[in-house]
Structure formats: C-alpha cells, structure tokens
Design a binder for these strands. Structure first.
Lengths: 335, 335
DNA sequence: GCAACCAATGAAAACAATTTCCGACAGTTT
DNA sequence: AAACTGTCGGAAATTGTTTTCATTGGTTGC
C-alpha cells in the first residue's frame, strides 16, 4: 500500500454519487441536501480522506503557502521572527515554507527561485544584503507579493522593519549622554552592506562634535558570542581603549561581557556595554544587558498583514509602502 | 498581469514545438537533438519560465517537500535542529514546510493533517508528548515516512535522539561524585510526560543509595530562563536547600545562575549548577555552565538520513529503527 | 523497389481536484 | 395538458506537467 491515497473518486464509488457531488458536499455546498452531505461526510471519514492540496492548488492557482527566507535562523532575533511569522500565517490558514540563504546572495537567489517554482502565494524575506535587491525587483514588477523584513525607502518593494538607524543613533547618543567619548562599535553587518546602525552611530557622534575614529569600529566577521569576545579583544588590545562599546547585536555583547569577566574589567565602571535586539538572554546576563528593543512581534505581525494585503490585491499591487518601527532603549545594568 | 505564469505551452507556441517536446528538452532528454534543446532552452530563458512544481507533483506523486513539526522554535536546541534539518534537506533537493505545535497535542494533530493534505513526502516530528503517539501510528502503518526526533523503543516508529535518560543519569552521577547528596531538579518536561531525564536522575540516586526526595523536584511550568529563575527561587526558599541543581535545559540553568547572582549565592561553592543541551550561550555564562551535550547536528543528520531511506523504500517500509546517541558531559566552571 | 528501421516529434491520457454547464425529474402554474 | 420553475446531480472541461504510444519522413539493407 503506497501511502494510501484516498481520492474524491473513491468516495464517489463507495457512495454511488459522482466525484463532483462529493466535492461539493465536502465543502458544504448548499446545493447538496443535508442528508446527502451527511452520507458523503461519513464515507469520507471512514476512508480517512484528506483533501489533496496539490490538485486543489493546480486549479485554484493558489497554494495557501508562503515562503520565508532568512539569512540564518541561529540568530535569536530571526528565530523569534520565524516563530512569530509561522504563527501569524497559521492563524490565517497559510503554511510556511522555510529556507535559509546562509547570508549569501547566490543562495538567496536560488531559494527565491525554488519558492517561485513551488508556487508560493507570497514571499517574506530578510535579504542577505540590504542593498542588493536586483533579483527581487522583477518579481515585484510582475505583481508577485513580496515583503522585505528590512526597510529601504529606495527599494521600491514593501518593507517592514525596526528603524536600525534610529536605534544606532539613540544608543550612541545615550552613551554620549553618560559622558562617554570613546565609544567602540562591534560590527557584524558592514561586510554585507547593512550599515544602518553604523550610520546612526556616526550621526550621533557628529551631532555631539565627536570625531569619528575608524579604529574604534571592528568587524567581528560573524554574529555569535565568540565573535563578540574576539572583537572586544582586538578593541581593548589597541592603544586607544574605549570606555563604552555599542554592539551590533546581543550575542556579540554577551561575548563581550564574557571577555570583561575574564579580564577583570568591571561593567559598567570600566566599560559600558550596549547590545542590540533585546533577546531573551540579555535580561539574564551578568550584569543584565542594556540594549535596543527590536520588536519582533510587531514587525512580524505587520509584515504578514502587509503580505496578506498584497496577496488580496491580485492583479494590480498597490504602491510599495515602507513601515518603520522606532525602537526603544532598554536600560539595564551594563551601562 | 496576474503573477505572470509562463507555461510549457507558451514556450511551445513561441518555438513551434509541442509542449511534450519542450518538456523533454528542458529536462535535457537525449531524445531531443542538441540544437532543438538549445532553441527551447533560450526561449524558456527569455520568457522567464519557472517549472510549476505543483503540476509536476500531481503527476509524479511526490512533492520533494518534507514537513518539520517542532513544539516551539524558541527553544535554542530546537532552533538549531530546524536550521540543521533545513540545510540537510536543501542539500538533497527537498524543501522544508515548517510548523509548531505550541506544545499541545491538538495543534500537533492539526499540523500533521495539514502536512498530509499538502502531500509532503515525509514528516520529521518532535512530538509534544513523548508517549502520546497514537495519532502517528496509523500513518506509519500506512507506510507514511515518518521519523521522530525522540527515541521511544516502544513507539513502533523510527526515531533518532540523544539518550536523555543516560544524560540525566550521567549528570546526576557526576554531581554525586563531587560529593553532593541534596541535588535539586528543575523540571520543565514532566507535565508533558517527557520523563527521560528525571528517570536518569532517579536511577543515579538509587545506585548511590540516596533516597529520592520529591520536594527537590520543581516543575518550572515553562522552559525559558525566567522559569528557571523562579524555579530555583522556590527550591532555595524551602527548608531543605540543595547543594547542587540539575536543570532540564540550559535556559533554565541560565535563569538559575541569575538568581544566584541576585542572592549572592556563589557558584559552584554554595550551589553547583548543571545544565542540559549545551546551547551556544552556556559557554559565555558567568561562570561558564557545565552541561550535557546534545549533539543537534548528529541527530538532525541521522534523522534526515533515516527519513530519506524511508522515502526511498516506497511501498514497504523497513522495520522501525531507534537510534540513540549517548551524550557527553561538558564540564565547565559551574560545578 | 520494398520492407524494415530510426530519428524526431506530436497527440492524448493520466494525475486529483474545481467549475461550468446541462439534464432529469417533480411540482406548480396557465 | 402544456409550459414553467426549482432541486438535485452528473458530464465534461480545466489546471500544467509527465508519460505512453503514435506518426511522420527519410534512410538503410537486401
């Protein structure tokens, strides 16, 4: 028995009705009298009928499935996004086809193509490179429902995101307000051209008349805790030690925290540390980490809402709209 | 233009060949001369043809998609599993349809049904309740490829997992070896009937002649850090303070760590803490956490391998096989 | 010079559902 | 009794692909 497939026809043969009648009955069409429906329903139950979505999709031209492309699900914020998106979609009766781009453009292109050929009704994507969107624009032009989990006003594609430039600005301004002048920046995103936080950081320095010192910015070459550990190590090993560090994300900051413990650097007296994202563990760091709140649930919800609107629009998509959520600072004990 | 669909027929009309020839040509059939193939290929390219998997699936009776059911992707070990599974499947040309059961049996049943109706070629599932598998057994009997990410020898269904009983046993025995007699247990899993670690814990106590004290086991009612924090609080608030705590998972242990910092309890002198899973942040705890290594990559890889074998077997599935990986202790500074 | 063969292509039938249209029959109206 | 109306159900077309089987027209072999 090869994966027992029960078709409408099987129910039809069993009950003596036509497949057509069975189809209508199972969808509770008022055209079929209640009694007939009951007979058919119980026969379906008995045979263990499960509707075949792929056949249904072929005729209805919709799969009720959307594709979610993330760079890397190990990043806690993206994990959280995946969960929130999946739940929001499930509530609306959509399935989630999921894939990672591993932070490379080439894989991202392949994944999008794979999703298209699987006929997903729309795509939600956190692109690897925030400014390399050329492979997505033709899709948008072809009226393909597509929402970015970043917000580039020039993209010409819908996007929902936290305003990272504002986040970087606020965090830096706050550190400056605390009296810090030498503020390090642990940067995991620049190599991918995702510079919003760095720009906010520079803007805050500029407003306070503090010259930007490129030596205070270190590329961590990754966004896990260990990268933060080594990033801080090079920063603190240099001649111009900072008195505060702003970190591209919380994992990095947690790694930095660990470096301080190892080297008997007191937090926040000797070094203030500011994270980004407000992942669950920040609250339980030692000390609890100050950070910038990335409201994953709001972003996910709004992105899904927007995608649903695009799917509903059909032939002619509305003008792309960018939604930016202004983040809030969460001040704990590391600053 | 509603989501510009280019069909084989469109290529056929453009080139003057039949759809059939186009189909063959695009799949590089040797029956079509190279020259014809080149013409067809370039026409397909020009029109931006993307094969329609849903139509293909209808005839081939395979979707090259598998369903992954997890209880909750916020659990770092499951996150890691999702990532590892997705990568392993992508390597084999399979897509990953993903859903969470939110730790409830009812949602799990719905998700499995949804996957079935979407005709996934197989299902990988971390069930909400390790002993409530009745909804899965009929699938296995119907030769549906199915692999559990737990290992229940009595399940009658293939499974791959870390041996949690052994993990619980080893961790407890190690703590006993350190001289501890009063060992607390932070339990997030019992309410779902997932008792393997607790059983290992009890077995270790028994072997050392230490009577089991139910007051030392606290249900945390959740598996995030905050649950560990409050769990430890009740444990330490009681009359019989333990000298060591074994925790159902690392998030819980990190929360417990935080409680100790808050209450000036020294680790490991006053209280030894042992986690479970070896998630990324354990290494960067303060102090770094001793834990039990859950080899996610090995489990995921083996589970996918097994699933592929089942899918390949077709009509008659081989006997179910349970694969247990014996975990290793990772000793750091919290014990 | 004709059967046999072969290479290149096409026609049509699947696949499992939905949709459109049409027919049978019963009951009601003229 | 003819014409109309409405209910119930079925036949057939459709969706985009793959697969099986046919059909060309041109060569080859004897």
């Amino acid at each position: 028995m090869p994966k027992a497939i029960v078709r409408l026809r099987d129910i039809a043969e069993k009950t003596g009705f036509s497949t057509n009648t069975v189809s209508l009955a199972l969808r509770e069409s008022p055209r079929i009298p209640l009694e007939t429906r009951a007979i058919i329903r119980s026969a379906a139950q008995e045979l263990g009928y499960v509707p075949n979505y792929v056949a249904k999709s072929l005729v209805s031209r919709e799969t009720r499935t959307i594709g979610l492309v993330l760079t890397d699900i190990l990043n806690p914020t993206l994990t959280h996004t995946a969960q929130a998106v999946e739940i929001a979609l499930a509530e609306r009766g959509y399935g989630t086809l999921f894939a990672t781009s591993n932070n490379t453009l080439a894989e991202e292109i392949k994944v999008v193509e794979m999703f298209r050929s699987r006929q997903v009704d729309g795509i939600l994507i956190y692109p690897a490179r925030h400014h390399d969107l050329e492979h997505l624009r033709p899709l948008r032009r072809a009226n393909y429902p597509l929402v970015l989990l970043i917000a580039d006003p020039d993209a010409g594609i819908d996007g929902v995101s936290v305003n990272d430039r504002s986040g970087g600005f606020q965090a830096t301004r706050y550190l400056i307000g605390l009296g810090h002048r030498r503020i390090g920046f642990l940067d995991a995103s620049h190599p991918n051209g995702n510079d919003e936080k760095l720009e906010g950081y520079q803007e805050a320095l500029r407003q306070s008349g503090i010259p930007f010192d490129p030596d205070l910015v270190v590329a961590t070459n990754g966004h896990y805790a260990r990268h933060g550990y080594f990033g801080l190590d090079t920063l603190m090993g240099g001649p111009k030690r900072p008195t505060a560090v702003f970190s591209d994300n919380d994992s990095l900051a947690l790694g930095a925290l660990h470096w301080c413990h190892k080297h008997k650097v007191r937090i926040p007296q000797d070094l203030a540390i500011m994270g980004y994202d407000n992942i669950a563990f920040t609250e339980f760091g030692e000390p609890p980490l100050s950070t910038v709140n990335y409201d994953v649930d709001a972003v996910s919800r709004m992105a899904v809402d927007r995608l649903m609107r695009l799917i509903g629009a059909g032939d002619q998509l509305p003008e792309p709209r960018i939604t930016l959520i202004d983040p809030e600072l969460i001040i704990r004990e590391s600053t």
